[in-house]
Design a protein around this nucleic acid. Structure first.
Lengths: 212, 212
DNA sequence: CTAGCCCACTACCTACTGGTAGGTAGGCAT
DNA sequence: ATGCCTACCTACCAGTAGGTAGTGGGCTAG
């Protein structure tokens, strides 16, 4: 009989999980920075401080590693957004709440944003990952929310689906293309104050397009 | 004495240029689809119908090929945008003109958009290419234009630089992430009618944020 | 102490990368 | 005919990719 999960190993399990976590964290960095093809397992292993075969002891292959990193972060993302979406605020207040949550989320995890952008750009090149399918429910419910608010006269009339796509592009791009934007504004676009500036702009811009 | 450039070879030069053009066209396709690291010279050569060494007869190395493709398309892009920007229209009419030109441009060259997005995402990973430096003059003059119009009361007040970044994100994203958006709207996002839909939305959205 | 597991290691494999060397077929000018 | 040039080829290089096999140390359980 296998003794399933002995309750209290300390170092063994801790180290194991810690190594796994280290690998995932380093993979995120690398995949965000250089993309799937631009990242070698050697790069990741070196970042963790182990050799490639040791890395492959924790993950069956590169694709599985990528999938796990992606799924992990997608789960984090949805969890945090769900909290904001679940709030009972209505009208503009709710939009502001969700936009703020999005900004905070992206500010906290810029690597995730770049990885997500690469995934959207590659468009299903990585089997087993269907970004659109995961986000679709959120997209549909948000679209329905806008339609209802517009119908009720709370918001000005717009195409709700394209409105969401516009918002997605406006916010995500600032973080995913930050290093490009650096060159436009002559400073680090990811500095807190610049992020706040962009957030304030997006909020006021969307507000003046939606309200009154 | 070397006979410099005999004036009128027909087939030799034509074939040569045609092969070069074929390589550039195929490179664009591949780089847009799979990125720099995801594209091998063999892929490109195979697409053209020649072998890798023959390809390297036309371009000194992979980086030089990438640079030429990128510079070529950047030049095309700036040329077309300059025409729109040079128009003497003022106020919202000018914004509408430039946005329409941008949409037409992106619609005509979706591969270019994806390549450009990848470049912005990689942020200077490819030496000798400085996207921000090239676009900076356009960015600054556009920013000045908005500031002047807002000062004159033609447009509502917004942060002009962040307004431009928002617009850049809103439009580019639709094309660069088209395959992801496919999954959200359950159809090919690059179909003419959907592009028109998004263009109409962006125009009306920006208009209601800027005017009145 | 011993048995066994976990984890990381070295050593190796095949496939493919970007790039080079050297050769050949054909066009064109002298 | 000769000689040069362009455009392509095959064959090869060193380096690196992802992945596998087998080894050994350190820990824990019995």
């Amino acid at each position: 009989m296998a003794q399933v999960s002995p309750t209290g190993n300390n170092r063994a399990d801790d180290d194991a999980r810690s190594t796994r976590e280290l690998i995932i964290a380093e993979s995120l960095r690398c995949f965000a920075e250089s993309g799937y093809d631009g990242t070698s397992l050697n790069d990741i292993a070196a970042g963790v401080g182990i050799r490639r075969p040791s890395l492959l002891h924790h993950f069956t292959n590169k694709e599985a590693l990528y999938a796990e990193v992606f799924e992990r972060l997608l789960a984090d993302w949805l969890e945090r957004l769900d909290v904001a979406v679940a709030d009972q605020a209505v009208g503009w207040a709710k939009v502001e709440l969700v936009l703020n949550a999005g900004f905070r989320l992206f500010e906290d995890t810029p690597d995730y944003v770049r990885m997500m952008r690469r995934e959207a750009l590659d468009g299903g090149a990585h089997p087993g990952i269907d970004l659109a399918a995961v986000l679709r429910p959120l997209f549909d419910s948000a679209s329905a929310y806008f339609d209802a608010q517009m119908e009720a006269g709370v918001f000005k009339r717009h195409n709700s689906r394209h409105l969401l796509i516009t918002g997605y592009g406006a916010i995500l791009t600032y973080f995913s293309d930050a290093s490009f934007i650096d060159g436009l504004i002559d400073d680090d676009a990811l500095r807190k104050e610049h992020i706040a500036e962009h957030r304030d702009h997006v909020l006021s811009f969307f507000k003046s397009a939606l309200i009154d």
